Amino acid sequence: MLLNFSIFLLSLAILGAMFLPFLRGRPRWRAMITPLASIIGSGFLILGPILEVQFGAWAPVAMAVLCLAGWLFGAAVRTNIAAEETPDTALVARIEQVAQLALAFAYVISVAYYLNLFGAFAVSLTPWDGDLTARIVTTVMLGVVAVAGFSGGFHALENMEYATVALKLAIIGGLLLGLAVFFGGKAVDHALIFDPSRMGPWDALRLIFGLIVTVQGFETARYLGKSYDAPTRIDAMRWAQMLATAIYMIYITLLAFLFTPDAHNLNETAIIDMMRVVAPILPGMLVAAALAAQFSAAVADTGGAGGLISEFTRGKIAPKHAYPVLIATGVALTWSTDIFVIISYASRAFAAYYTLQAVLAALQSKGLKSGAFWALAVVGLAMTLLGIPAEGS
């Protein structure tokens, strides 16, 4: 009872602090919110159980590799932000156009990813929990997003972003407190679990490739140019990635040694069953965080995809005319495959975009730095071609 109260109190304190004027009014903090919201959005809910089941005690190492990959690709994007004032060559301009199209495609898949998680969490604590009802909810929400976009209702929905990020960070703070207390009790009782990885090195690397979408989102800082200058966006991305990395590493390190990996029960809402053991208050809080985070992320990515397609076609296709096609793709993915395959598809799509960003950074750099970005582009290409999905129940 005391732990439940402490978790709730800490979450409430973090939520209140997020709305303090001196913090909310800072331009760098406001700029940081968009990439931070994307990085620790859906990935936080599903990544823990995947890494715990597939990697066992090696889960923190896998998380560190994912965060390092995100940081390196972020460095490429930051280099490209810094080079925005430099006149583009014809080659750079063409690659940038292709990169934007790749990002639009990645957003299309990520919308299906976000709203499939929304559907799964929406029914997870109800008597109707199951794949069919989750997919029905997902399809309905895809329709809501399509209607909102076509009718011009995105602006009001996008204003929810700060509130959803505040709620998400508050609940994550409570979750980490619960895990820390539970971890401490297990450690005192010498009951921590040290399981080996279920995968060989090659398959483990390919699975990490297929999970890059869970740490993506930092690239959104590049497209805030209408609101913030380049130095602010670069700093915002850097700090968002550092904070997200700290949160992820603490979370995975605590989680990895608390439960016996159970591949038969690995699904998109596995974190709910895990947290029931930690503290009874956590499942409901996590569902609330999931619903808010997934819907706002889906709205943001649908809007982003529509805008990028309109820009790529030089206005020939208006964003609102792209939305129904984007949502139809999401419906097709929802009913033809499972969340783990969608995650893998989304990871490959984002890896393709990051490959192009690394190529752009290489073309706009010199010497060893250019060589490093070319090497990073090769890694991105490998992620695009070789990433595999986790095996769910």
Score class of each variant (00 low, 15 high):
77 V>S: 07
77 V>I: 12
78 R>A: 15
78 R>K: 11
78 R>Q: 14
79 T>G: 12
79 T>W: 09
79 T>F: 07
80 N>E: 10
80 N>H: 05
81 I>L: 15
81 I>F: 05
82 A>Y: 06
83 A>C: 10
83 A>G: 09
84 E>L: 15
84 E>P: 06
85 E>A: 08
86 T>A: 13
87 P>Q: 06
87 P>F: 04
87 P>A: 11
87 P>C: 14
88 D>Q: 12
88 D>Y: 10
88 D>W: 03
88 D>H: 10
89 T>P: 15
89 T>I: 14
90 A>H: 09
90 A>V: 12
90 A>M: 09
92 V>K: 14
92 V>M: 14
93 A>Y: 06
93 A>Q: 12
94 R>W: 09
94 R>M: 14
94 R>K: 10
94 R>V: 15
94 R>A: 13
95 I>H: 05
95 I>R: 07
95 I>F: 07
96 E>K: 15
96 E>C: 12
96 E>L: 15
96 E>W: 07
97 Q>V: 06
97 Q>G: 10
97 Q>S: 13
97 Q>C: 14
97 Q>K: 12
97 Q>D: 13
98 V>I: 15
99 A>N: 08
99 A>D: 10
99 A>S: 13
99 A>C: 14
100 Q>C: 10
101 L>P: 13
101 L>Q: 11
102 A>W: 10
102 A>N: 08
103 L>H: 09
103 L>P: 05
103 L>R: 04
104 A>K: 08
104 A>Q: 06
105 F>L: 13
106 A>H: 08
106 A>K: 04
106 A>F: 06
106 A>V: 15
106 A>I: 07
107 Y>W: 11
107 Y>S: 11
107 Y>G: 10
107 Y>H: 11
107 Y>I: 03
108 V>A: 11
108 V>L: 11
108 V>C: 08
109 I>R: 02
110 S>P: 05
110 S>G: 09
111 V>K: 00
111 V>T: 07
112 A>G: 05
112 A>F: 02
112 A>C: 07
113 Y>K: 01
113 Y>W: 02
113 Y>V: 01
113 Y>E: 02
113 Y>N: 00
114 Y>K: 01
114 Y>E: 02
114 Y>P: 00
115 L>E: 01
115 L>F: 02
116 N>E: 04
116 N>V: 03
116 N>T: 06
117 L>E: 01
117 L>H: 02
117 L>M: 07
118 F>C: 00
119 G>I: 00
120 A>C: 03
120 A>P: 00
120 A>W: 00
120 A>S: 04
121 F>A: 01
122 A>G: 05
122 A>C: 04
123 V>M: 04
123 V>D: 02
123 V>Y: 01
124 S>P: 01
125 L>C: 09
125 L>M: 13
128 W>K: 02
128 W>P: 07
128 W>Q: 05
129 D>H: 05
129 D>L: 13
129 D>G: 05
129 D>A: 09
130 G>F: 03
130 G>V: 03
130 G>R: 01
131 D>S: 08
131 D>M: 09
131 D>Q: 03
132 L>K: 03
132 L>E: 08
132 L>A: 11
133 T>H: 02
133 T>P: 03
133 T>Y: 01
